[in-house]
Computed example of a mutant assay.
Amino acid sequence: MSDVADFAGEAQALHDADLAERLEHERLAREAQPGTEECIECGDPIPPRRREAMPWVTRCVPCQEFEDHKGRRRR
């Protein structure tokens, strides 16, 4: 006989699988988009090593950190 914990565990497993699939889909979509050589925020050049590591980037590190910080404050 299944109990509430079994149902909760199954629901959590389905949620985790759905989240993992969605994150992978977002990652693939992001990586498929071309990046830029200059930051879209400040116009400074994006260092080649950053573009090699993440070809889809559109912001320099300081601007991306600022954007990430803004996103955390909204939650």
Rank of each mutant, 00 (worst) to 15 (best):
S2A: 09
S2H: 10
S2V: 07
V4R: 00
V4I: 10
A5G: 07
D6R: 07
A8T: 12
A8L: 10
G9E: 10
G9W: 04
G9D: 01
G9I: 06
E10T: 01
E10Y: 14
E10A: 03
E10N: 00
A11C: 06
A11V: 06
Q12W: 14
L14H: 13
H15K: 03
H15P: 01
A17H: 03
L19R: 10
A20C: 12
A20P: 11
E21R: 00
L23I: 01
L23R: 10
E24V: 01
H25P: 00
R30I: 02
Q33A: 07
P34K: 11
P34A: 06
P34G: 04
G35V: 15
T36I: 01
E37R: 01
E38C: 06
E38M: 02
C39S: 00
E41N: 03
C42G: 05
D44C: 03
D44E: 09
P45W: 11
P45K: 11
I46K: 00
P47I: 08
P47E: 12
R49N: 14
R50Y: 06
R51D: 05
R51T: 11
A53K: 08
M54F: 05
M54K: 08
P55E: 01
W56V: 06
W56N: 08
V57C: 06
V57S: 04
T58D: 10
T58P: 01
T58A: 05
C60M: 13
C60Q: 05
V61L: 15
V61C: 10
P62N: 08
P62D: 11
C63M: 07
Q64P: 03
E65Q: 13
F66T: 09
E67F: 15
E67P: 03
E67I: 12
D68K: 14
K70N: 13
G71C: 04
R74Y: 14
R75H: 10
